[in-house]
Each structure stands twice: as structure tokens, then as C-alpha cells.
């Protein structure tokens, strides 16, 4: 790592250190307002109170795609500019994105039980979110498979971009496959006919969850930078102790 490269993570750390408390506070306030609004929202004439699940299901589903977009932007930063901060951003986003995708699946399944009568329906949306979840897990497996962080970053960047290209194709094929096999009785939510009484709490919750992601992502990026510093220091320590003892000494040989 060069000195000029280190300058930016250091500035990033000091900037985010000052910013994070405000972001966390804003997240908490917006989420609390959102929770209050969704608690007081009226029942849907068709679904009853289960419409309240939508207020956390839809923001998580939106974030599951948004986080992949953030990782794709970071992947471009990794491949084009080889910026270490982009590596850090991509790595920190993956587990958070996987968590939100997992939540979208769980809440979708809990929503489906009263609506469809089963926990899992091979519905087009649930199925494509499931595939997205598998891709998040694959990406995390890739990050964990390699020790050298910059080598892992470049491989993960290629995979992230290929995934971003492939996701619309997968979505399209799953939709097509689903209309082929779909039993007609499945309930569909009318996206455009969403009432204002539901739209406002939904939007507030979406903003709240997005703020939550930004806060968590910045904090996780800080951790990742610190982890890299630990790694660099440990390597310097190992090198220093190796040269002190001399190359001939068997004690300095790494196991």
C-alpha cells in the first residue's frame, strides 16, 4: 500500500467518525416515525392487518437490490481506479446486503402464509429474491476464500459486475417461468393502486432503512480499514522479528 493511498482512508475515518453519530440519530428518528405511521395505518380491505408486513418487507426488498448496485459501483472503482477504499466498500456491503435480502425473504414468507396459505410459494418475486440471496452468499464465500484482500477484491468485483448484468436476465426468466407455471389463484398486490394511507408510511420506512444501511455500511467500512491496518502491522511485526533473529535462525521460520 502506498502512502498516498493511505491518506484517503485516514481522511475517510476522521470524516465518518464525526458524521456517524448524526447519521445514527437520523436513522433512529426516521425509523421511529415510520414505525408509528405503520402502526397507525388503516387495515387493507382485502388483506386486513397483514398489510403492515409490507412496511418492512418492501424496504428490505428495495435495499437488497440497492446494496448490489452500491457494490457494483464499488466494483467499478476497484477495477478501473484500483482504489483501496472501493475494495473496502464492496467487502463491507456484502454481509449487510445479505442480511436485508434474508429479511425480505423471511417477511415475504410470513406475509405469504396468511395470503397464500403456505410459507413458500414459487412466486416470481420471492424466487428472484431467493436467487439474489444465493448470489450474496456466493460473493461472501468468495471474500472468505482468499486471504489477500486486494486479490479477493478484484475477483469479487468481476463477480459483482457479472451478477449486476445477470440480475435483470434472471428476473426476466423467473417472471417468464412463473407465468408458465403459475396457478391463477395467487394474490397479487396492485402496485400502482397503492393508497396514500399506505404509501406514506412505506416511503418513510424505506428512507429509514436506507439511512440504516448507510450508517451500518460506513461503520463496517471503518472496521474493514482498521482490520487492514492490523494486518499490515502484523506483517511488519513478523518481518521485523524475522530480520532481528536472522534468516538462519530456525525460530524465525514461519510454521
Amino acid at each position: 500500500m502506498k502512502l498516498s493511498d493511505l491518506a484517503n482512508p485516514t481522511r475517510f475515518l476522521s470524516l465518518t467518525g464525526r458524521l456517524l453519530p448524526y447519521l445514527a440519530a437520523a436513522t433512529a428518528i426516521v425509523l421511529l416515525i415510520g414505525l408509528y405511521l405503520s402502526a397507525t395505518a388503516p387495515d387493507d380491505y382485502q388483506q386486513g392487518a397483514t398489510v403492515k408486513i409490507m412496511f418492512i418487507h418492501v424496504p428490505n426488498a428495495w435495499l437488497s437490490m440497492f446494496v448490489w448496485a452500491v457494490m457494483s459501483a464499488a466494483a467499478l472503482g476497484t477495477l478501473v481506479w484500483r482504489h483501496p477504499l472501493a475494495d473496502v466498500a464492496a467487502k463491507a456491503a456484502a454481509p449487510i446486503g445479505a442480511s436485508f435480502t434474508f429479511l425480505a425473504l423471511v417477511t415475504g414468507s410470513l406475509w405469504g402464509r396468511p395470503m397464500w396459505g403456505t410459507y413458500w410459494e414459487w412466486d416470481a418475486r420471492l424466487t428472484s429474491v431467493l436467487i439474489l440471496f444465493l448470489m450474496y452468499l456466493g460473493l461472501m464465500a468468495l471474500w472468505r476464500a482468499v486471504e489477500d484482500p486486494s486479490r479477493a477484491a478484484r475477483a469479487a468485483a468481476v463477480l459483482t459486475l457479472v451478477g449486476a448484468l445477470n440480475l435483470p436476465i434472471i428476473k426476466f426468466s423467473v417472471d417468464w417461468w412463473n407465468t408458465l407455471h403459475q396457478p391463477a389463484s395467487v394474490f397479487r398486490m396492485g402496485g400502482s393502486t397503492l393508497d396514500r394511507a399506505f404509501l406514506i408510511p412505506l416511503l418513510v420506512m424505506a428512507v429509514g432503512f436506507t439511512l440504516l444501511f448507510v450508517t451500518l455500511h460506513l461503520a463496517a467500512m471503518r472496521n474493514e480499514i482498521l482490520r487492514r491496518r492490523v494486518r499490515a502491522l502484523q506483517m511488519m511485526q513478523a518481518r521485523a522479528s524475522a530480520s532481528e533473529l536472522g534468516p538462519a535462525s530456525p525460530a524465525s521460520q514461519p510454521a
Binding site: 444465493l134 452468499l137 456466493g138 464465500a141 463477480l159 445477470n166 434472471i170 426468466s173 417468464w176
Partner: peptide, 13 residues
């Protein structure tokens, strides 16, 4: 694990 999700569209069609 990395390649199989990408091949879902080919399998479907």
C-alpha cells in the same frame, strides 16, 4: 456456487 445461479436463465429456457 458462483456459477450455478448465473446459469438459471439457460436452464429455464
Amino acid at each position: 456456487v458462483l456459477v450455478l445461479p448465473l446459469s438459471i436463465p439457460v436452464l429455464i429456457f
